[in-house]
Amino acid sequence: MSGVRSYGDPCGVARGLDVVGERWALLVVRDLLLGPRRFNDLLGGLPGVSPNVLSQRLRQLTEHGVVQRRDLGPPTRVHLYELTEWGRALEPVLLQFGRWGSQSPQRPEGALGIDSLLLSIKATFDPARAADLRGVYEFYIDADTYLAEVADDSVQIRRGTAPDPDATLTTDLDTLRAVCGHQITMAAALGAGTLRLSGDEHARQRLTELLLAPFTPAPQPAKT
Rank of each mutant, 00 (worst) to 15 (best):
R69Q: 05
A131D: 00
L58H: 09
L176D: 07
V179D: 00
G87S: 00
G199M: 10
A128D: 12
S2C: 01
R88C: 01
G73F: 03
P47T: 06
L176A: 05
R99P: 11
S104P: 07
T185R: 00
E63M: 01
H79T: 01
A148D: 03
Y7F: 15
L207A: 13
D200M: 03
L210R: 13
D18R: 02
L32N: 12
G65E: 05
Y146E: 11
V155A: 09
A162P: 15
E209L: 00
L58C: 05
D132E: 04
D115T: 04
P217E: 12
R37Q: 15
I184S: 07
L210A: 15
L33G: 07
P92M: 10
G101T: 11
P92G: 08
S154E: 10
G16W: 05
D164C: 13
Q56V: 01
V13S: 12
D18V: 01
L58W: 09
A188R: 07
D166Y: 14
L80C: 02
P221L: 03
Y81A: 01
T168W: 12
G48F: 13
D115E: 03
Q60L: 14
G44W: 11
A187W: 12
S50M: 08
A131C: 04
G199H: 10
R57V: 00
Q205F: 03
G181Q: 01
M186K: 13
H182A: 06
T84H: 05
S2G: 06
L43E: 06
A151N: 09
E85D: 11
A148G: 03
G191K: 10
Q60W: 13
R129I: 06
A25H: 06
S120P: 02
D174Q: 15
D174P: 02
T145N: 07
L34F: 12
D152E: 14
P92S: 00
G135V: 08
D142W: 06
K122T: 05
T76H: 01
A14G: 08
Q183L: 12
A89K: 13
L32C: 13
V179P: 11
L118M: 04
V49K: 05
L32G: 06
L212V: 12
Q156G: 05
Q183H: 13
L133W: 13
I121D: 13
A14M: 02
R134W: 01
G12S: 14
I114Y: 08
L211M: 02
V78S: 06
R134A: 05
A151D: 07
R177I: 06
E63T: 09
G35R: 04
Q68W: 00
E91C: 06
P75S: 14
G101Y: 08
A89L: 11
R158H: 03
L32H: 15
D71G: 12
A25L: 07
